[in-house]
């Protein structure tokens, strides 16, 4: 389960509220950790849910935080948008301790955010969710012709690729020349 609250500072996060656990609570108290994204909203997530993420699981294992330390030091993921992190946390909670089904109906529905979600999931190393996300991307072009695939996946033509490469080379050349000139100026 997770809860969110607008954090004011990553160093001293606000006390997150927790949603009620399921009726059949485990006998051994579950440990919780805290994560936040670019928007500094802190999410309280159980260790069981976080096991989906190889990255966070590794961090937890290495740091050996107590509950208090974990609360005081939420894991910062500044490169992930808050709403994307929320989706990821929700998915991890929904699949906590469950075998992942071959077809996942709990995937985030906002396809316009799929790109950011794929990158975030890849960064957090959530293997199953990444597989589902990749399937979603592939489904966008199911049964399409090469030209339709180009349009949907925004693939530049070879001519556009060549023009972009030329432009990049030109820019790199200019930057190199600028650096040389600056170095010569410094030497004088």
């Amino acid at each position: 389960m997770s809860s969110t609250e607008q954090g004011t500072s990553s160093a001293a996060p606000a006390e997150p509220t927790t949603a009620p656990e399921s009726a059949a609570a485990p006998e051994v108290p579950e440990s919780f950790y805290y994560v936040h994204g670019k928007d500094k909203v802190v999410h309280k997530v159980s260790a069981g849910a976080l096991q989906h993420s190889a990255l966070i699981h590794g961090m937890i294992s290495n740091l050996g935080y107590t509950e208090e330390q974990a609360k005081a030091n939420p894991f910062p993921f500044e490169n992930i948008d808050g709403d994307i992190l929320q989706m990821v946390v929700d998915w991890c909670n929904q699949h906590k301790g469950k075998p992942t089904p071959p077809e996942d109906t709990n995937l985030p529905k906002q396809k316009e955010k799929l790109f950011d979600l794929v990158l975030a999931v890849n960064y957090l190393e959530i293997k199953e969710l990444l597989t589902y996300c990749c399937k979603q991307v592939a489904m966008m072009v199911k049964g399409k012709s090469p030209e339709e695939i180009r349009e949907i996946w925004m693939i530049p033509t070879d001519a556009e690729d060549e023009a972009a490469e030329k432009e990049a080379k030109k820019r790199a050349g200019k930057e190199a020349a600028g650096e040389t000139a600056a170095a010569a100026g410094d030497a004088k």
């Binding site: 592939a138 090469p146 996946w153």
Partner: peptide, 30 residues
């Protein structure tokens, strides 16, 4: 979906979930 902005390993993962004829169709784009 700007697939070309994904790293190559992710692009490959997406392609691996596709059927062979879809991969061949993709290969014709560039």
């Amino acid at each position: 979906f700007p697939i070309r902005r994904l790293p190559n390993d992710l692009c490959s993962m997406v392609l691996k979930t596709m059927d062979p004829h879809e991969m061949i169709a993709y290969s014709l784009t560039s």
